[in-house]
Design a protein around this nucleic acid. Structure first.
Lengths: 208, 208, 208, 208
DNA sequence: GATGAATGAGGGTTCATTCAT
DNA sequence: AATGAATGAACCCTCATTCAT
């Protein structure tokens, strides 16, 4: 059971709106005061409701946080996947992938930051980050890249290399961008992204 | 004020020993139960002293945590820098850098994990990760790589590329390794590291 | 004010049905999850309505609980009284009383358990169990027994003893049965009841 | 681990005193405002400390409550057992048992009431009273009586009857006394107790 | 008659920090 | 140099109750 709603099970318009609002307020709260201080009281204050009301829409704090995570992840993934699909060759797809990732930093910087903040703070029973170390989640991020790389190799666009290692390097580089953005406020991420595409292509043996 | 120590600032032998012990216990605590559950009570319990005693050696929790961070960072950096210095050409230095980073994962996995755990959790007044986004800290990590790259270009060992972008890519890739290790327990990080060196060199236009 | 019903005080068919349904659902809820966890949400869920709707039929939680108590008590009392009336001599009536009490444990175990659960939990303003310590309620339980005993003494069937003390002992013994049933799942309450009748009669000086 | 104390494990004088004080305050609180409203805030208020301080001496609420239960049960049991041991024949022992039980109602009425209040409210996972239905606890109450009865039968002091049934009746009757005391404020429990002894003896076939 | 939404008071618990000894 | 005891603020969560619709 997701929230306390029982009778119908269907979501009301008001409920949907409140959930969306609470998700937005949670993103703002986490990005403004940090994951640890983004308490339900803080979130409720921003939403203009009481703490108790949150529990009407979400069963508990974890469910709210997971809804935020899923929301940002889904919308971000959709954007990137759409851009990849719009590209034709694997080389164009890889470029589209990097550029879409950079674009999402322009479009939804808070969401991206919060995504990683949540990933870092949700822990399993041993206190290890549950999401970051989640096999499935990592695979969901790596696999599409591996796919592009393999098809590029088959098509003769890319040279010889271990596709998983390359995909891991690419993914790791992109995931560091939000951090670099904050550490270097003047960083031109479009230029950096362009540099990366060049680096990746050279590493893959693409004729320039 | 850093701690309650007298203005003289001298540290007694016992104090130094206790500080070292508390730092070790904190590392163990964070790695065993996670950053959030590594309370002062938990740390004190492992050290065999009382919570209150911690405040005799560290002004507050943050100072203890920062001492842990500095300790692990310093010892890790020293290892890596020593290996770099032992290499002669920039190309050999870059290879040494990557291999030393991988080696530190073998030698001191707890320390590295805790380093990143702390980095993810310590926040500034606005709630942003204070250490990860710290300009100076990032520069301390990036600058030595940029240095190697520049010298490699000047020496004609490396080709044409923007050194900062390349350094950021290299650093980002390495920093993701601890995460990959946990997400993929079977990952052969030595092989992965070797792949990375190859990728970096190709991206830099090094003749293979 | 007992409920929100209009001054006319008439109960519609739907209201009567809903009240009965809510009483049954409350019994089930208390017996299944315990008095403390039998919240209005839990009860409403079982009844297939919303929490708010309960307040249309009962002024507040206490009134619902009291309705449950009265319902079970009344139906249980009726059963027992009917069996007593069917017996002719005081001695037969006392035996009928004990046997009817045991029978009610067979017939309506949930109701009986809930009856005592409510009795233990409902408190007055000073926090004392309101129902258990209610003079009138105790008298309603004791008086009929005293009546049987007195008539038995007058008829010469029973010997000399203080009827109130004897009635209190009898009642106390019977009221402990639900507890014994739960503490000793293998207890044969019919045999135990038969033993009790013998003990009571001996205590009353009935010729065996 | 019982409380948060870790270093020594031994109990300090202050700790022992505070625990005793908290146990007394809890008894008062439960008896004054009822089990449900005897919150930690209420208890702390009566003890003149903060809620948080309670957790220094008891790991959690349950542990405090259990300490109260054990304290009252132990001291009550000791009183009764001592009086039984002081009697010589089984018949005298049974009389001592009843009289000691009545005496404990005179000496420690609050404790006895709270004992039963706790017994009624502590529940297992299915919401059933955990203590009341606890096999071991019931046996601890019943067994000593059965023992007296058996020895009385062997000694020829008591007649023929099923000892367990008789013991259950006796125990049930005594346990109802606190309730009767509250329901009938004018009840003379000494006289009632004397009546009970007579009834029990007659039921057991003791020559009067 | 009933729903969906929200309130608000209170619950137990955690924990960094303080301080007299 | 350390202990034991306590504080106090904040935390997540529960729930009877209210009320516009």
């Amino acid at each position: 059971m997701r929230s306390k709603k029982q009778p119908s099970g269907e979501r009301t318009f008001v409920d949907i709106a409140r959930r969306a609002q609470l998700i937005e307020c949670t993103i703002d709260a986490i990005d403004d005061v940090g994951y640890q201080k983004a308490s339900l009281a803080e979130i409720a204050r921003r939403a203009g409701i009481t703490k108790g009301a949150i529990f009407y829409h979400f069963a508990n704090r974890d469910e709210l946080i997971e809804a935020v995570f899923a929301h940002v992840l889904t919308s971000g993934t959709e954007l990137i996947m759409a851009r990849i699909r719009a590209a034709e060759t694997p080389r164009a797809q890889l470029r589209a992938y990097v550029e879409a990732f950079v674009a999402s930093l322009h479009i939804n910087p808070r969401g991206i930051r919060v995504l990683y903040a949540i990933g870092d703070h949700i822990t399993d029973d041993e206190g290890r980050p549950r999401l970051v170390h989640d096999h499935g989640l990592q695979e969901a991020a790596i696999a599409p890249i591996v796919d592009i790389l393999r098809r590029g190799q088959e098509a003769g666009e890319f040279g010889e290399f271990e596709p998983r290692s390359m995909a891991m390097m690419i993914r790791a580089t992109l995931e560091a961008m939000p951090t670099y953005v904050l550490a270097y406020p003047d960083l031109d991420i479009d230029a950096y992204g362009a540099d990366l595409v060049t680096f990746f292509e050279r590493a893959m043996g693409v004729a320039q």
